[in-house]
């Protein structure tokens, strides 16, 4: 109990410092982008790292969140806060519709189905001209994602996520990841907990997409293609499957590396591709493996170290 309180306090402290340290406009932009990417990565991490369901289509949930928030704020003049939250809920609702039939699939087959569904959602957004303005994109979104909004959402959702993975549901998800049959035999309702993981991860991605729309002032279906989905999963694998702090670290490293190479934009994607391959060749288990970052601190939490290594 005490430990989790300390963890929460530490996370909120990180959030407050992200929000208050004086920074230049450019650095503020990076912080906002970092928060947005981290929120989406946490969602995918819950599904891929903690539940063992590989997805290659989560950019579609970001697209749903982004379009929901954009259409609500621009067309109907709704305040940005309910619009962002609605973005998350719309993504989760669609995820529920999609998850009902497809979560029965396991392993590679879910990943394949998620590619198909993700692309289908993107194509629908692209072809539904009257509602989404199609492939030309949706301009004129208010820049509601200021630094404090992004940091606020990041801190709130991050605290929620770290509590979630150590909660009863979190342990249920890890159990069903490690051995679904055994978890079912123990009396866990694994289909229901897998569905919960999908809904929560879609909610996180929806929020992230809605924030991205407010940051870029412009969204386009092609921003949320298969490449973006791959990036989300790659970040999670890079950080370490089954490590939430690893996910945040991986997301931070990749976001800042991409930012560093912005000057040589022509080579950016080449470097990104080489990074993916190199990581997989050199350290496929990711930066932190399946351990959380505090388990590396000597003597702080000896019991957790043993448990998480399992």
């Amino acid at each position: 109990m005490k430990k989790s309180l300390a963890g929460n306090a530490a996370f909120i402290a990180i959030g407050v410092s992200l929000g208050l340290i004086p920074l230049s406009g450019y650095e503020e932009g990076i912080i906002v982008l970092l928060c947005i990417n981290c929120i989406a990565a946490m969602g995918v991490s819950l599904l891929t790292g903690f539940t063992g369901i590989f997805t290659l289509g989560h950019a579609a949930y970001m697209a749903l969140g982004a379009y929901t928030a954009a259409i609500m704020t621009v067309r109907y003049g709704i305040h940005w806060f309910p619009a962002i939250v609605a973005g998350g809920f719309v993504a989760a609702a669609i995820a529920w519709l999609i998850g009902m039939p497809t979560l029965r699939l396991t392993g590679d087959y879910y990943a394949i189905a998620s590619i198909g569904l993700g692309e289908a959602i993107r194509l629908i957004l692209e072809n539904w001209q009257s509602f989404t303005r199609g492939a030309r994109g949706f301009p004129g979104i208010d820049s509601y994602t200021t630094r404090w909004v992004a940091v606020l959402f990041f801190t709130a959702l991050g605290t929620g996520m770290f509590n979630l993975i150590n909660s009863r549901l979190g342990r249920e998800l890890k159990a069903s990841r490690d051995d679904r049959i055994a978890a079912s035999l123990m009396g866990f309702n694994t289909p229901s907990s897998r569905m919960k993981a999908l809904l929560i991860s879609a909610f996180y991605c929806g929020i992230s997409g809605a924030l991205l729309g407010g940051y870029m002032n412009f969204i386009q279906p092609s921003m949320f293609d298969m490449m973006k989905s791959t990036e989300l999963t790659a970040v999670v694998v890079f950080g370490g499957l089954g490590s939430m702090s690893g996910t945040l670290l991986g997301s931070a490293i990749i976001t800042s590396a991409m930012e560093y190479f912005r000057d040589i934009s022509q080579y950016r994607m080449l470097i990104y591709g080489l990074m993916l391959v190199t990581i997989m060749v050199v350290r496929p288990e990711g930066v932190l493996g399946n351990r959380e970052i505090w388990s590396f601190l000597p003597g702080l939490t000896p019991d957790r170290k043993g448990r998480d290594q399992e």
């Binding site: 694998v237 022509q266 080579y267 994607m269 591709g273 080489l274 990074m275 993916l276 997989m280 496929p284």
Partner: peptide, 25 residues
């Protein structure tokens, strides 16, 4: 090194990005 095919899958996505962008450059 490992039998987990997901790593191969992600590496192959990296390779496809590399090949595509080599030609772009």
């Amino acid at each position: 090194r490992t039998s987990i095919t997901l790593y191969l899958l992600i590496a192959s996505m990296g390779i496809s990005i590399v090949i595509e962008n080599i030609f772009v450059i």
